[in-house]
Each structure stands twice: as C-alpha cells, then as structure tokens.
Design a protein around this nucleic acid. Structure first.
Lengths: 196, 196
DNA sequence: TTCAACCTACCAACTAGTAGGTTTAGTTCT
DNA sequence: AGAACTAAACCTACTAGTTGGTAGGTTGAA
C-alpha cells in the first residue's frame, strides 16, 4: 500500500505521528514539523504533496507496524490470554514510559467527521484490522477454555478495543497515566472470569 | 461558575458545542460560527473574549447540564441498574437520533495536551463529576445486591466511563452508530452478571 | 445618558500550498 | 578518469486565504 520512505520522509512522518498523538489532525501545521525536523516548510511538500496525504501515509505505516506487531505477539505468546496481555502491556509501557500516550487511530476516529476522506478511510481500516485480530484471539481463547465470552467474539473484540481506547481517554481526562493499566487490567479480567 | 448567557451568546455556545463534537478544539473557527449564527466574526468577541474562554464556557455549561441530568436520572429511576441504563440510553438516543454523536469532554480529553489550560481544567472537572456520580450509583447497586463489582466502585466507575467513551470512538471508527448501543449494553451486562 | 449588542474595517500571524532555482549524489557516455 | 546528464532533495520567496483578535463607531432599548 505505502512504499518505502526516504530517511527524511520517515523523519517527517514520525514527528507528524507524535503531533497527531498529542492533538489530532488540526492541532499541528507544516511549520511545527519544519522546526523540529530541520527542513523548510516547503520541502515537506516534496515528500508529501498535501497534509491529508501526509496523514494518510502516517496512518498507513501505523497500520502496517501494528499488524506486524500483532502477528509477532500471536506467534510468540503461548496462548490467547498471553497475547491479549502482551497487547495491553505494550500500551501500558508506551503510556507510562512516555514513548507515546495515545493511539493515533483512536484520536483520528474521534475527529473522523472533520478529517479528509483519504485519511478517514485508512483510520477505519485500522479498526477493521485490529478488531479482526482481536476476534481471532478471543475465538482461540474461547475454544481452549481459557477465555469466557458473554457474546459473539466479534462483539467482545470491539468491546475490548473500546475499553483500551476509552482507557487512553481516561488517562488524559483524569490527568493520571496510571489509570490506563488499571482499566486495561480490568478489561482483561472480564474476559477471564467465569460468569453465569 | 458560569453566569447566565444572553440568547445570542447561548446560540454561539450551542453551535460551538456542535462543532466541538464533530472535530475538537482546532477543527473550527470563529468564521464557522459567524456563518451559522448570523453574527459577524468580530461580534463573537463581544460575548466571548477569546476562543479558549468560549470553549471553557461551553464545557462549563455542559458540565452543569450533565450534573442536572444525572441528578434527575438518579431521582427518577427506581434503582441503580435503571439509572445506569438511563444514562446509556441517553447517549444511544443522541447518537442514533443524530442529536449529537460524541461527548465533547471525551473529545477534548483526547486532545488534552494541545488545548488551552483553562479549557483543560474544565474538561478534567467533568471526568471527576461523572466518575463521582457513577461511583455512587455503583455503590448503591452493590449494596442492594443488584450489581456485582469485581473491583472498588471507584475503579469500576472509571472503567464504565471508559467503555462509554470508547464506544463513541468505536461508532465512528467502525462507521456504524449502531455499534454504540451494542457496546454500551455489554458494559452494563458486565456489572449485572454474577462472577466468580 | 448609559450600555449591551452589534457592525465595518482592520491587523499581524499563520495556514497549506506553489514557483522556480540550487545543491548533491549517482549514473552514463566518452 | 573526467565530463555530461539526471533526478531527488532541498532552498528562498511568494501566494491567497484564514486565523484569532482589536479599534472604533452605530444602533436601539431602558
């Protein structure tokens, strides 16, 4: 989908992602990027013809990396519960370690009605990717008896995703990063405890 | 906290809220409001000295209305579970009926690092308000035996709130408003089913 | 006469984006 | 090897339009 980027283009995309994490599509400008990346504002257009396209590429790479990361987790974790925990821990580490503090697709999904279509399509693609992966993991966990679902795996997957995204919002809204791992843990517990 | 607004000021605040719902703090300008509300761009400054203050007032009024609505639910519903359902149904109706499709505080919380402090403080205040109310409801439901909590009511309250906000994000990310009531229902079910 | 509500006409700063030229590095031709 | 060509990467300088905000005046009702 997206071709290899030159080192400078990658640097631009990477910083754009950082800015997206902080405040979404309309919170940053080419000037912000130019200042950080040591390139002229105009030269950004050499790498990315428009802001919409820049964000599209950022999200497209984000999707690729996410898919790779998820596949790796699935392969390296012994079972469904471990994979789910690995996913939650990944974000806990990001948020507590200040590597990054928000999923750019959750951010852009919130802003969806006001962002360019080409970017919106990519964002919705990530929602499909992630919910598909989660559905597969939950189904595996259900078959092995490790997880107990109240509803169809597809719906439980969406709910788990929503809890993770909601937990990111909560960490900011409560002004406390520690809230994220607390809520993420609860989301996992709910899939493991036996209900009647 | 916030004084009564003149009819025109209320109209401005109301439309600003609509725009905030769609795309957050940086997605709209005074020009957008001026066009809709039939007032000159400059005259908006007569009612609100700055954009930050306008948004602060919008969120402040939102908090007041929310608190009133929550109090009303608590008073008119026979029990904790009904109150919780009433809260979830309120948002389902908003989202399915296109009255509004997002909580502006969830939106602004996501964007928190990039919005003016005076607005951010108000947003975080709403998180306190709502989690306090939910905690009280959950405690009542627990004492009556109607709800069963796995964790402290404070944490379960934050988790429920996160599930609602996450469900709003999901409705947009999956491009399907119907996703919201599905996930909201699941959030409620989790508090009612007996676990071990 | 006072004052809130509103206006037009501005402003400087910033927005994404363009035009057109320069540098740099690699490739090809002799 | 050295000259010539190519093309990506980058620049300065600019544009038209928008941003939030100000100055100063008009209207109309109490």
């Amino acid at each position: 989908m997206s071709t290899e980027l030159s080192p400078k283009a990658a640097e631009i995309a990477s910083y754009a992602q950082t800015l997206l994490e902080a405040g979404g599509y309309n919170s940053f400008s080419y000037a912000n990027i130019a200042a950080e990346v040591n390139i002229s504002k105009a030269s950004i257009h050499h790498h990315f013809p428009s802001k919409a396209e820049l964000v599209r590429v950022v999200v497209s790479r984000y999707r690729q990396q996410a898919l790779q990361g998820l596949e790796l987790m699935e392969r390296h974790q012994p079972d469904a519960l471990s994979a789910l925990k690995a996913y939650a821990d990944y974000w806990s580490d990001c948020i507590l370690g200040q590597t990054s503090s928000f999923c750019i697709c959750a951010m852009l999904a919130a802003e969806l009605p006001s962002i360019p279509d080409i970017a919106a399509v990519e964002v919705q693609g990530h929602f499909q990717d992630l919910s598909t992966w989660l559905t597969r993991i939950l189904q595996a966990g259900q078959q092995s008896g490790q997880l107990s679902l109240n509803r169809a795996a597809e719906i439980e997957a969406k709910a788990f995703m929503a809890e993770i995204h909601g937990a990111m919002v909560a960490a900011r809204g409560f002004g406390n990063p520690q809230v994220f791992p607390e809520l993420a843990q609860l989301a996992i517990d709910r899939l493991t405890s036996v209900t009647n």
